[in-house]
Simulated assay, not measured.
Amino acid sequence: MGKALIIGAGGVAGVVVHKCCQVPDVFEEICIASRTVSKCDALKEKLDGGRTKIQTAQVDADNVEELVELINRFQPDIVINVALPYQDLTIMDACLATGVDYVDTANYEPLDEAKFEYSWQWAYREKFEKAGITALLGSGFDPGVTGVFSAHAQKHHFDEIHTIDIVDANAGDHGYPFATNFNPEINIREITANGSYFENGEFIETPPLSIKRVYDLPEIGPKDVYLLHHEELESLALNIKGIKKIRFWMTFSENYLNHLKVLENVGMTAIEPIIFEGKEIVPLQFLKAILPDPSSLGPRTIGKTNIGCIFQGIKDGKEKTYYVYNVCDHQECYAEVGSQAISYTTGVPAMIGAMLVMTGKWKNPGVHNIEEFNPDPFMDALNKYGLPWQESFDPKLID
């Protein structure tokens, strides 16, 4: 079928590479590219010998010229961006310059400000339309599968959706006193920012982690969840008809929050540069360097994740509640692809989104969020490629 350029070599990229190799009829060739080519070579070594041909390359994803040169050399049909959110725009610029489709898992975030929103990428809509290429934004789990779940609920279960509660619960235990399950820098920036939710046409801001609930979720039990701002709220507010309220919830243990508070209090989560021994450093980037690498957590993480969406709305004139979710086992993920479930639940949807664009099912010139496409082939692929979904119609889930 074609060729994919995968930019990034961290935990999520490792899952994407594994899953692309499971679909060799679509991904005949892949190139893994990163600033540190040894990481790409290590991934290639694990998977060489199958039907998918693998090559590696060194590239600075902050450098458009380097990206363009690599794309022209490898000639991919699609670029799968699993690098850092700071690099989304340079990679999109390179795709525009070369006429290649684009997929990512997280929206752009400027390096000097903990602010993640779609405005920067949505500004590329007309350029991608004119170039005749597709940009699929946020094809991870949240954002990503949560948008597909919302499109699925809208298409098959409701005449009107009024409320969406996205609940991201991780009941995994890695045994460290403190570690993050994905990039520590991105994770901590996200959590320490103000929360927000969408209600009646506007976004209402809240102090960080100030709103807490307890959800009793299938297979993992009662968990403390906290309201966060998350990027899919912004696109779902536009794309789900009749929506009145959207909230995003994530689990954090008391232990995790205590560690985070201390780190915040002593300035280790700051993103403003400081001078240390004559050199400029960013405290949060230094903290990232000394915390456990998320890609190393796989062999020691036990337990499960439960990520899903609770919908309330109207069907045939009656009130209805619908809950659709995925439960993922950390140890099963590690046995299959060598990663914990957080990377797995992001990497699998990235492969599926790329596959649907490459096969033409989701090919639509312009810049699009995932819920704008027909959810049915994606929902089918989730069951086939390792993230089977379940559903419930129990109204007791709603607080």
Rank of each mutant, 00 (worst) to 15 (best):
M1S: 14
I6S: 00
G10V: 08
G10M: 07
A13Q: 00
V15T: 04
C21T: 03
F27H: 04
C31A: 11
A42Y: 06
A42E: 14
L43T: 04
E45F: 14
G50F: 11
G50R: 11
I54M: 12
A57Q: 07
A61S: 14
D62R: 15
V64A: 03
E66G: 11
L67F: 06
L70A: 06
I78F: 03
V79C: 03
I80V: 08
A83M: 03
L84F: 01
Y86P: 00
L89N: 11
D93F: 05
G99L: 05
D101M: 09
A106H: 01
K115F: 05
E117M: 07
E117A: 13
S119K: 13
Q121T: 15
I133G: 08
I133M: 10
A135E: 01
L136Q: 00
G138Q: 12
G138A: 14
S139T: 08
D142R: 04
V145N: 04
Q154E: 11
Q154P: 01
D159V: 00
I164K: 00
D165T: 08
V167Y: 05
D168K: 13
N170G: 13
N170T: 04
N170I: 06
G172H: 10
D173P: 02
N181T: 12
N187D: 15
N187F: 15
N194K: 15
G195E: 09
N200D: 15
F203H: 12
I211E: 10
K212N: 06
R213T: 04
Y215E: 01
Y215I: 06
P218V: 01
I220E: 02
D224I: 07
V225L: 09
Y226R: 04
L227H: 05
H229L: 05
E232C: 14
I240P: 02
K241G: 03
T251Y: 03
T251I: 06
L257R: 10
V262T: 13
M268T: 12
I271M: 02
E272R: 12
I274E: 03
E277C: 13
E277Q: 15
K279V: 11
L284Q: 06
L284G: 00
D293S: 15
P294W: 09
L297K: 12
G298I: 02
P299S: 05
R300W: 10
K304I: 00
K304Y: 02
K304A: 04
T305A: 11
I307C: 01
F311M: 01
G317T: 05
V327F: 10
C328Q: 10
Q331E: 15
C333M: 08
Y334H: 13
A335Q: 11
Y344S: 08
Y344M: 10
T345N: 09
T345V: 08
T345D: 01
P349I: 02
A350Y: 03
I352W: 05
I352S: 00
G353Y: 06
T359I: 09
T359E: 11
N364L: 14
G366A: 15
H368L: 14
N369I: 14
F373N: 05
N374I: 11
D376H: 09
F378I: 02
A381V: 01
A381H: 00
A381I: 00
L382I: 01
L382H: 00
L382C: 03
G386W: 04
L387V: 12
L387P: 05
D394A: 08
K396L: 12
I398Q: 08
